[in-house]
Computed example of a mutant assay.
Amino acid sequence: MAFRFAHNNFNVLNLERSLAFYEKALGFREARRLEGPGFTLAYLSDGGKTPHELELTWLHDRKEPYNLGENEFHLAVTTDRFEEAHRLHQEMDCICYENQAMGIYFISDPDGYWIEILPEK
Rank of each mutant, 00 (worst) to 15 (best):
35 E>K: 11
96 C>T: 15
112 G>Y: 12
80 D>Y: 02
12 V>I: 13
111 D>E: 15
84 E>C: 07
114 W>H: 13
62 R>M: 12
70 E>P: 00
66 Y>G: 03
75 L>F: 13
25 A>G: 11
5 F>W: 06
121 K>S: 12
63 K>W: 02
30 E>C: 13
115 I>W: 05
69 G>Y: 06
39 F>I: 11
77 V>A: 03
55 E>K: 04
114 W>E: 14
1 M>L: 06
37 P>S: 11
93 D>M: 01
15 L>F: 07
59 L>R: 05
53 E>N: 04
116 E>H: 08
96 C>N: 08
116 E>C: 07
120 E>M: 10
105 Y>T: 12
39 F>E: 12
10 F>G: 05
27 G>S: 08
65 P>Y: 07
110 P>K: 10
30 E>T: 09
79 T>H: 04
23 E>K: 12
78 T>K: 04
83 E>C: 01
63 K>T: 14
11 N>G: 09
22 Y>H: 01
23 E>W: 02
37 P>C: 02
14 N>D: 15
120 E>A: 10
7 H>A: 03
106 F>A: 10
57 T>S: 10
67 N>S: 08
103 G>E: 11
64 E>S: 08
45 S>I: 03
25 A>H: 08
37 P>R: 12
5 F>K: 02
83 E>A: 15
29 R>H: 11
8 N>C: 14
60 H>W: 04
87 R>N: 05
114 W>Q: 14
65 P>C: 03
